[in-house]
Structure formats: structure tokens, C-alpha cells
Nucleic acid binder design. Structure first.
Length: 417
RNA sequence: CGGGGUGUGGUGUAACGGCUAACAUGCUUGUUUUGGGUACAAGUGACUCCGGGUUCGAAUCCCGGCUCCCCGACCA
């Protein structure tokens, strides 16, 4: 895309009403726009980032048998009263509204109840199991206090997956597969090394749930980790009992601040029993289904990536997530140079590589600063100076490594690695 | 929800209770410049968050509300 056509602009100054690094940089670079506290629009660049994150997660969920679907945001009161979770005293993050025709509706903060209810129409025999479904969707949570930009919002995008299994064994098998799929996601998202699967409160059905926690100063959680043993424990279940069960001592654990980027938990058969989601077993009996729930906060992950990978000049996107692979700049008013840059831009795009071409009539300083701020993985400069040095200049945003490449070899550089 | 702050052109800031609300940036026009936000000139742009009150006079003081930020609480 030509940058002159991009309607969003970069800003030199951070907005005064944002203090978190992720919000400041994403706003300055034109990825997001703030509507109100905890509510942000995704501008074209931000939307591309989110789509790229979703695509990674989508591929990994599909690989373990997930089927993508979309549930509604408006939810019926009845579904939630059945499990006693409609009451504001029980769930304090509800956004609710009334129908003009009479009656109340809620805006989905979770989809556990509606999905279970919906599945009653489709699951009736042990032969229908297992079923794994997931969606990407906006969740609404009426937080008393939104904070830290994309880290805790009132409206945000989440991937939520649900597993319906016949018995504990099948459930556990899929649970473990999901753990591995999640780890592949975080690796591909560029935060794998800082992300730990963490023992957390299990609630009514199991002793523990598992969270995926990424070390991050802006996070809200504190966990205890042992990198060698690969064990992490959330502060909320950190006690002698837990330590003994997991076979670690307090002395070998390190306390770190983290952001929760995923959470998976097991409902056992309780939820389906409560909601009467039963299937007929091989023996002809009516039995409740094992339910598992698996979430990844997509927009929060976007925030964490910015928080953890950005430097003092701006955002640094991992290659798979960046809205464009290449930021192509040209300096000077030499027409031949500009034409060469433009033709390289077309060649790269035709080769299937996403390029943001800064064709604006601006000085080099402004273009370079914008490129640093926006954070594409590769910056290519076409100028008289680069020509003197043997072609075009390629700079890696993450490392600052520079090399000069013959324009004729440029496509090969990106397609052959 | 408890506590602490905040609110002034699009953005970032300034202004003792007192002249036409200032500066920077952005944007427009022209000239200039082209490897780290080039320089100059001329323009453009604000009911100072909202509603009351005090005062000869309020961006400034008082009361109420709202907004946003931070700390805490909360966070299947």
C-alpha cells in the first residue's frame, strides 16, 4: 500500500490521557483510536495486526480439530438464569439492556452458557462427540476500572474455544493437545520465551485451571516460576499445599509480574448436567457431557507484544504479525530514484510480499522516524546514497542490522530467506 | 467501588482574579531543503468539559455533575 493513501497519520506526541506504552505507541503510530476508557477502534493498521494474530490462532485451533463459528453478542437472560449467573451480585461485569418489545438481554462477557444451550440442538448421541468449536468475538465486560490501553478493556476481542467430550479421558487428551497448540501460538506470536503455563485457581470443578502468563511489567498478575522445571504458579494458589503437590520448594521459585494471555479450564460434567446437555451413551443411558473452555485474549496479546518488544523509537512487530513485511522508503527528489522505488514496490507486491511504500513528499528524518515508530520488520531505503553503496539498503527493525542488496536480487532475498 | 489527580484550538503545553486566551506542533498556500521530524513567510483553527454560584470582572475562586489517568479493591 502507498502510505500517501493511508488515511491514518502518525503523531509526534503521545496523548496526555494514556500512560501505558502500548496505548501511547499504538495511538501515535495510527493503529488504534480511543473511543472511551477501555474501548478502542482498530484502524486499518491495527485491524491488519489483529487479523494476523487471529490467523495464527486459527491455524493452530484448526490443527487440533477446532471448528470456527460465530455466536451472537446479544444473549438471552434465560440461558444465564438457569445457572444463576445472570445476577449482578454473581457476575459483576454484565452490560445489560432492555428490549423495546419487553424483556432483558445481556451483552456477552462469556459464551459458556449460550454455547452449551446451543449445543443441545446438535449433540444427542455419544456418536456426536467429541465436538470442538471456537470463535473470535468481541466480549463486553463492565469493568469498574479499565486500564493500561489494550491490557484490560471493556470491549475486547477474544478467541474462545469449547470442547465437548464423552468422558474424562477424552477430555484430558484434548486439554493436553490444546496446551501444546497454545504454546505454538505464543511461539509464533513472538512471546513464547516469556510465556509460562501456570497453575491457577480451579474453581468448583477441578483443583487447578491453567493460565498462560507472559512476563510483562504492565501485567496485573504475579506468579512464581521455575524456568528449569517449567513450573509456574499463580499467586492466588501459591501455598504450601500447592508447592507440595507440584514438588517444588519456595526457594527455587522466582516471583515475576505477568499478563494473562490465555486461560483454559475444565468444567467436568457439572455445567452440562446443570444445563441438561445430555447425550445417549452406548448403553442407552442419558449422560452429561464433559465441557472444557479455552480462551486467548487477542487484543491483549497485541498489547503485550507492543509492551515487550517495542524500543525507545517505537513498535517492533514480529514478522508474522506486522501489517506489512516491508516499509519501503525513498529519499530525495531524484525522479529516477523514485521510479525505481515504485517499480520495486510493484515487483514485491506482485511476489506476494506486503509492502508499505512511503511515497510521501517528506524529508528523510520524518520518514525514518515514522518507519521506526510503525515497526515493520524490514525497512528498505532506495536513495542515491544506497545506490552508491551497492543497491538498496535493508534494515531489520528488531536488530538494526543493515545490508545492501542488488535490487535485482531483492525478491529472492525475501522469498528464499 | 474507596482514595489521589486531571480537563484550555486537531495534538502537546502556557496564562497573578484584570488588555483581543499565549507558545509549539498539525493543517492550507508559496519559496526552500532531501540520510534522522530543514528553513522562512502568509494563513487556518478555542463558547477554556457541562451546569450553577461569588465578583465591577472568572480559564483562574466556590458548589454540583461528567470525563480521563493513576493506586487499591475486583478480575471463570
Amino acid at each position: 500500500m502507498k502510505q500517501s493513501k493511508l488515511f491514518t497519520k502518525t503523531r509526534k506526541e503521545a496523548p496526555s490521557d494514556e500512560t501505558s506504552k502500548n496505548a501511547q505507541l499504538l495511538i501515535r503510530a495510527g493503529y488504534i483510536h480511543k473511543e472511551m476508557a477501555g474501548v478502542y477502534d482498530l484502524l486499518p493498521l491495527g485491524s491488519k495486526v489483529v487479523e494476523n494474530i487471529k490467523e495464527i490462532v486459527r491455524q493452530e485451533m484448526n490443527a487440533i480439530g477446532g471448528q470456527e463459528f460465530i455466536m451472537s453478542s446479544l444473549q438471552s437472560k434465560d440461558v444465564w438464569t438457569a445457572t444463576k449467573r445472570w445476577d449482578d451480585d454473581v457476575v459483576d461485569v454484565w452490560f445489560k439492556s432492555t428490549l423495546n418489545a419487553g424483556g432483558e438481554v445481556g451483552f456477552g462477557w462469556s459464551h459458556e452458557e449460550p454455547i452449551t444451550e446451543m449445543m443441545k440442538s446438535h449433540l444427542s448421541s455419544y456418536k456426536d462427540l467429541p465436538a470442538y468449536v471456537y470463535q473470535f468475538q468481541n466480549k463486553f465486560r463492565n469493568e469498574l476500572r479499565a486500564k493500561a490501553g489494550m491490557m484490560r478493556g471493556r470491549e475486547f476481542i477474544m478467541k474462545d474455544m469449547y470442547s465437548f467430550s464423552l468422558d474424562a479421558e477424552h477430555h484430558e487428551d484434548f486439554y493436553q493437545k490444546t496446551i501444546q497448540a497454545y504454546q505454538r501460538c505464543y511461539d509464533r506470536l513472538g512471546i513464547g520465551n516469556d510465556t509460562f503455563i501456570t497453575f491457577a485457581g480451579g474453581g468448583a470443578f477441578t483443583e487447578f485451571s491453567h493460565e498462560f502468563q507472559t512476563i510483562c511489567d504492565t501485567g496485573e498478575d504475579e506468579i512464581y516460576i521455575n524456568r528449569e522445571k517449567g513450573i509456574a504458579i499463580n499467586d492466588e494458589v501459591y501455598n504450601d499445599d500447592t508447592l507440595k503437590k507440584l514438588g517444588v520448594t519456595a526457594g527455587e521459585l522466582e516471583k515475576v509480574t505477568t499478563a494473562e494471555v490465555g486461560n483454559i479450564f475444565n468444567f467436568g460434567t457439572q455445567k452440562c448436567a446443570d444445563m441438561n446437555l445430555l447425550v445417549t451413551s452406548e448403553e442407552g443411558k442419558q449422560i452429561p457431557v464433559y465441557l472444557g473452555s479455552y480462551g486467548i485474549g487477542i487484543t491483549r496479546v497485541m498489547g503485550v507484544i507492543v509492551e515487550n518488544l517495542a524500543d525507545d523509537k517505537g513498535i517492533v512487530w514480529p514478522e508474522e504479525i506486522a501489517p506489512f513485511t516491508i516499509h519501503l522508503l525513498t529519499f530525495g527528489n531524484n525522479e529516477n530514484i523514485f521510479r525505481e522505488a515504485e517499480s520495486l514496490y510493484h515487483d514485491l507486491e506482485n511476489a506476494g510480499i506486503e509492502v508499505l511504500f512511503d511515497d510521501r513528499d517528506l524529508g528523510p528524518g520524518q520518514k525514518l522516524n515514522d518507519a521506526d515508530l510503525m515497526g515493520m520488520p524490514y525497512r528498505i531505503v532506495v536513495s542515491e546514497k544506497s545506490a552508491e553503496k551497492g543497491g538498496v539498503e535493508i534494515t531489520k527493525r528488531a536488530t538494526g542490522d543493515v545490508e545492501f542488496v542488488d535490487p535485482a536480487r531483492l525478491i529472492a532475498y525475501f522469498t528464499e530467506g
